[in-house]
């Protein structure tokens, strides 16, 4: 069977699942954006910027789909499938990013000086999606030639980094709380970051196992 036939499933998963995450995330931010704009129409631009953040996951999914279909179409079938799976599932972190961005937007609407800080917090839950993208690329370019990167075992790597990427939802919730704390007390920034980065530990576990699967098998 032509490997691209299975690869196409991967491409579909990448765009589909990541799109689901981005859609929900952007929806959450958009809802608070609509409220902010109703109060002050001048804040439309700010709302757009914050709503753009949870959309990047969808873009990564789209990117990987294009890479599978046009660039790395000769990669092993299961590598393509797993690459799509990793990017797609990890893209669900957009839900968390949407929650964080919505809090960030609220804080900026109250006090525009919060922009930079709110941005930094809102971008935290994107790490998971980036890890997913990273594993996808490592699978596609064929860095590792063992069974873990070329056979059905590659799905394990995809699941590891993909599902661990759901930690982004928790991270988004923490980040949203930290934004609120920082808005009240600017000095809470450092401690807030430490707390908000905690849920990322599990994404790192996922990333490590994914890499180990690719290297060892």
């Amino acid at each position: 069977m032509d490997p691209i036939l299975i690869g196409a499933i991967g491409a579909g998963l990448a765009v589909g699942i990541a799109g689901l995450g981005s859609g929900i995330g952007a929806g959450i931010t958009g809802a608070s954006g609509a409220g902010v704009v109703a109060e002050d129409p001048n804040k439309f631009g700010t709302a757009i910027v914050f709503q753009a953040l949870p959309q990047t996951q969808g873009l990564y999914g789209f990117l990987v789909a294009i890479l599978i279909l046009f660039v790395f179409k000769t990669a092993p079938a299961w590598a393509m499938f797993a690459a799509g799976l990793a990017t797609g599932l990890a893209g669900l972190s957009a839900i968390g990013q949407g929650i964080a961005s919505s809090a960030g937007l609220g804080a900026v609407a109250e006090n525009s000086e919060m922009f930079g800080k709110a941005m930094v917090f809102s971008v935290l839950p994107e790490t998971q999606a980036i890890y997913g993208l990273l594993i996808a690329i490592l699978l596609l370019v064929g860095v590792f030639s063992g069974a873990g990167a070329t056979s059905i075992a590659a799905l394990g790597a995809g699941f590891a980094v993909g599902f661990a990427g759901l930690s982004g939802i928790g991270q988004g919730i923490t980040a949203a709380g930290a934004i609120g704390a920082t808005a009240r007390d600017p000095d809470a920034m450092g401690k807030g970051l430490v707390l908000a980065v905690m849920p990322e530990t599990f994404a790192i576990f996922g990333l490590l196992i994914a890499i180990l699967i690719m290297i060892i098998l």
Partner: peptide, 16 residues
């Protein structure tokens, strides 16, 4: 380890 691996985002975003 997480701190070190976090720098892998340099590659991912460069590729993105």
């Amino acid at each position: 380890l997480g701190n070190v691996l976090s720098y892998a985002r340099l590659l991912a975003l460069c590729l993105a």
